[in-house]
Computed example of a mutant assay.
Amino acid sequence: MASENMEISLPLELHPFVIRVLDDPDLQQRLASIVEAKAFVEESLKVAAEQEIPLNAEILASTLRPDPLGLGRFTSAPLQMDNWPPIGWLPTRTVQSQDGTPAFDWVWFGPHRHSRPFFEEDVRRAEAMPFNWLFRVRTGLQALISGYGSEPEVPLKGLIFHMSRCGSTLLSQMYASVPDSLVSSEPEPLGGVIQWIRLAKVDQESAITVMRAIVAALGRDSGTGAKYHLIKAEAWNAHSIALFRNAFPSVNWVFLYRNSIEVLVSLLRQPAIHTVENLMPREMVELNDEEPRSREEFAALVVAKIGKSIITHQHLGGGLVIAYPDIIDAATTSIP
């Protein structure tokens, strides 16, 4: 049962109702589609009455607090589990644990493909539902690892790396439009795992295990009918191609690039987090020694380092480098 080995940080009066819902996928589906808090409370009261479970409307309503900024990661989650949540929940954010390892917040997506231009957009949609205000789950790193391999997953079939502002979203959205494809576009939980692996200097065997576990969690088979899982990585993940190759040696990758001046013009007009100094650890963008003199120089060095990383790691195999003007043709020929 999903409710076993779980800690509930909610009023005691809500525990029987929460446990019953967690053990019934039909009830999850019924409640999770409700978009207004008042309607969620009303339907929850109906469910509780049908299940002969006492439920106080005022207490339930008092726990339903929206979190549009994702600040819940800095506080305890309503539910804490030492295994994966039931089918339908996906990891959405990394959370810093007291021991320095990443923990993960999970919310209910149900049988819906996350295929928007960015994974964060799907997360915000899911987190806006009252169901997820009450049923957000947090697991530790060991729970993520122990759940790996325990259930079916949509197999990872491809990785998209990119220079930034060079057509990667176009390519990922083309594949997201294919009904049997599941596309995770720059999922934060994967980026959080990569940062931890690199900054904590995690040994290779453990790093491979965690990488496979987080990708499996993002690719859970939730009844969407998807057969292929594609991941569009964040631009700075190009520095971790060796890590991806070690964890997924049979999964091929593409790298998309564009005239670097055009890329820099876009990045200076609308900066990305990895191109602004001090918004990310310098180790993650391979700027350990260089001291840029301006924001323009910093962004230029970051872009240059990404390109250099691709050149350095192409010998690992499985890669295809595609220029921006060739993306449309390549999307239906060489890339598949």
Score class of each variant (00 low, 15 high):
N237H: 14
V276Q: 02
W253E: 01
M211G: 06
R212Q: 15
E234Y: 02
A247F: 07
P271F: 02
E277W: 00
V263H: 00
G192S: 10
A216M: 05
S184N: 09
I241Y: 09
V193T: 13
N252Q: 14
R293G: 12
N259L: 07
A233C: 15
V263D: 00
E286Q: 12
P292H: 02
V276D: 00
L230I: 13
R220M: 08
P281L: 09
K201T: 14
E205Q: 12
V254D: 00
I273L: 12
I231K: 08
E283R: 11
S222D: 11
E186N: 11
D221Q: 12
A207N: 05
P189I: 13
L267E: 01
Q173I: 10
E186M: 10
W253D: 01
K201S: 15
N246W: 13
E188T: 11
L243S: 12
G191V: 11
V254E: 01
S240N: 13
A176P: 00
T275R: 01
Q195D: 13
H239T: 09
R212S: 08
F244G: 04
T209G: 09
R295D: 07
S181M: 13
L243A: 14
S250C: 10
R212E: 11
V265G: 02
E283H: 07
E262R: 11
L218W: 00
